[in-house]
Design a protein around this nucleic acid. Sequence first.
DNA 1: TCTATATTTCGCAAAATAACGAAATGTTTA
DNA 2: TAAACATTTCGTTATTTTGCGAAATATAGA
Lengths: 111, 111
Amino acid sequence: MTDKIELTAEVKQMALIAKAMSHPVRLYILKKLSTMNACCYSGDLVEELPIGRSTLSQHLKELKFAGLIQGEIEPPYIKYCLNKENWAKARELFAQLFDNQNNNALKKLNL
Amino acid sequence: MTDKIELTAEVKQMALIAKAMSHPVRLYILKKLSTMNACCYSGDLVEELPIGRSTLSQHLKELKFAGLIQGEIEPPYIKYCLNKENWAKARELFAQLFDNQNNNALKKLNL
DNA sequence: TCTATATTTCGCAAAATAACGAAATGTTTA
DNA sequence: TAAACATTTCGTTATTTTGCGAAATATAGA
């Protein structure tokens, strides 16, 4: 009988991050925050997305829970931005999975 | 009143891929198939993973549904491997999201 | 203090997911 | 043909997710 493997904390963490990314609305938000390196307000998002306020709030909560974004209180708004540290961690986890060769090439360039 | 955005097919497809990756067992399988560029059998997996056969079968089905793996019948086994084309597509989608600068650097190297 | 604004929390319903064991399918070998 | 093996499908249950509107919270400005 071969031994059972215990799934590592790393795999579990990455699955959590993937789960946060597994909804089109959440991915849209992440894309928006990352590609322009910008921040945004819940009110901006609710105007462009085809969902209600409370639903959006839930999605933001999940992104926060996964550590991918953070909210700064900027009365009367809450400004949401990427959590850069965790975003970099996530990038690394996905690069590791997808892109071993390319990733090594990058290291040689000291980027 | 600002116009609502229709979520793009690309975002939806990426969300689907992320969903397939959002469970530790499925991520473990993908990691295994990608890092050694190997294939494996359901029987191998069920021996090392802490889940039952039918549950594993469901997970494999979901990975197939997302297009990330494919099964070749090799009696009496079914050999599961990455779907390389879709895997490359997924890599690109995530690289685009995470890694714009690095990605551009790679393109300059013609890797 | 009262009102308007921005956002979240609550309570709910519908749908999807995860897991299991039993039964079914299909193939190989005795 | 019968038995053994690998894997999937089915039926079920428990849990989680998604979405909404109403109510709550908190702040800003009149």
